[in-house]
């Protein structure tokens, strides 16, 4: 009797998927714009410490990374903390030359803006970090950043 009752055919109408590509492309562009390529393959495990008074590192092209932590492959490399530059393990002595090569790659005007980001595992002993810092001082790479995660601080809010 009802006016709205459909007559016959219980078939569901097919949902149009023609706008699905648009949605996915939108997502795709979002990710393309908001992300950066992973710079290196980490060979050391790094669990960064937490801090509150942190600043964001701007201009990633001008940041050199030094990774320090226990090797992921402990059976081969042992458990002593190691330094990683680019894709390979390095000794303390190689930090200086690494910074110098990086320095040669950038524009002269931008050299003073070069920052060294120390990504260090929180269990690392300060000895190796101090050695790296002394090495950085020798090559006049004085701007450093101790990379940390952001800690949600209860009494700050």
């Amino acid at each position: 009797m009802s006016k709205f009752k459909k007559d016959g055919g219980d078939k569901d109408p097919a949902i149009s998927t023609s706008s699905l590509p648009d949605i996915v492309f939108m997502l795709l562009f979002f990710f393309m714009v908001s992300t950066v390529m992973r710079e290196v393959e980490l060979k050391v495990s790094i669990d960064q410490p937490e801090a509150t008074e942190i600043e964001k590192l701007e201009n990633k092209a001008l940041v050199n990374y030094v990774y320090i932590g226990e090797p992921l492959n402990a059976e081969t490399y042992g458990t002593a903390s190691r330094i990683q530059l680019n894709d390979a393990f390095a000794s303390v002595k190689e930090v200086g030359p690494y910074i110098e090569t990086r320095r040669a790659e950038v524009d002269e005007a931008e050299v003073p803006l070069l920052t060294t980001s120390l990504k260090v595992d929180k269990e690392t002993e300060m000895g190796i970090v101090t050695d790296v810092k002394q090495e950085l001082r020798k090559v006049q790479a004085l701007k450093i950043s101790y990379s940390t995660r952001e800690k949600m601080d209860a009494d700050k809010f």
Partner: peptide, 12 residues
């Protein structure tokens, strides 16, 4: 994004 404590080392 990389966050950290920015510091300046003393010159050698």
């Amino acid at each position: 994004s990389d966050y950290g404590l920015l510091r300046k080392l003393p010159p050698p």
